[in-house]
């Protein structure tokens, strides 16, 4: 489903170049769930961004569902994301001027679904926020906001879901509830799940974990 080959990311910094990723080879199968772990600054989020086509690699290749991302420009990658990719972020990334329902509708509208509103409402009910559809993000707690984000991520029924520290901004109890929800819907939809986390509790729920250290893959275990 996802494959990287000798993936390299370098950035210009004062006094030279910094290598963030040093040639990553990774393959993730359909419906597999993979946790990327590692210390802060090890390159986890950069790897996630590259695999999701949010960023361009300095060298190497990424395939999503057989499509070579390096061959696509930014707009073609966006279309690919609209079709196949969903996201859950640490800081939720809900649009503050939209209601919960409108936030969930956003990817459905972008993908051109005519029944965006009813589908969005259904997914909000699925994450137990059926009563809060008209609320704005500022009127929701952190856990509730992340549930809206999960509803938004699954609403367009992506084949791959990328999650960046999905519980990083939440307390333990709320975080546990979010993890349950995430894996539950993931199983229902048979989505491929790639998540970046510090939390072993979350990483343990995945089929596989890969560890990054200073931009290199040091260990991969089932």
């Amino acid at each position: 489903m996802i494959k990287t080959e000798n993936l390299l990311k370098r950035v210009e910094v004062a006094g030279g170049q910094l290598e963030i990723l040093k040639g990553i080879d990774l393959e993730i199968k359909a419906s597999e769930s993979v946790a990327i772990v590692g210390a802060s600054g090890s390159g986890k989020s950069t790897l996630l961004g590259l695999m999701a086509g949010l960023d361009e690699a300095t060298d190497g290749k990424v395939w999503i569902d057989g499509v070579d991302l390096q061959q696509l420009d930014e707009d073609e990658r966006a279309l690919l994301r609209a079709e196949k990719v969903g996201f859950v972020f640490q800081s939720f990334q809900l649009l503050p001027s939209l209601t919960a329902l409108e936030n969930v509708m956003l990817p459905l509208e972008l993908a051109g679904h005519s029944d965006a509103e009813s589908r969005a409402a259904g997914f909000l009910a699925r994450v137990e926020l059926g009563e809060r559809v008209t609320h704005y993000p500022s009127q929701l707690s952190g856990g509730e906001q992340q549930r809206v984000a999960i509803a938004r991520a699954f609403a367009a029924e992506p084949v791959i879901l990328f999650a960046d520290e999905p519980t990083g901004n939440l307390d333990t109890e709320t975080g546990a509830h979010i993890i349950d929800l995430l894996f539950e819907i993931n199983r229902e939809q048979g989505t491929t799940l790639v998540l970046v986390t510090h939390e072993s509790r979350l990483a343990d729920r995945c089929d596989r974990r890969v560890r990054l250290h200073a931009g290199a893959l040091v260990e991969a275990q089932a």
Binding site: A52, D75, A78, R81, A82, F87, Q93, L106, L110
Partner: peptide
């Protein structure tokens, strides 16, 4: 900025 970044991550093209 954030609005556009989120929309683009969700698949909106620059033309859109």
């Amino acid at each position: 900025y954030d609005y556009v970044a989120i929309m683009k991550s969700l698949g909106a093209t620059s033309g859109r």
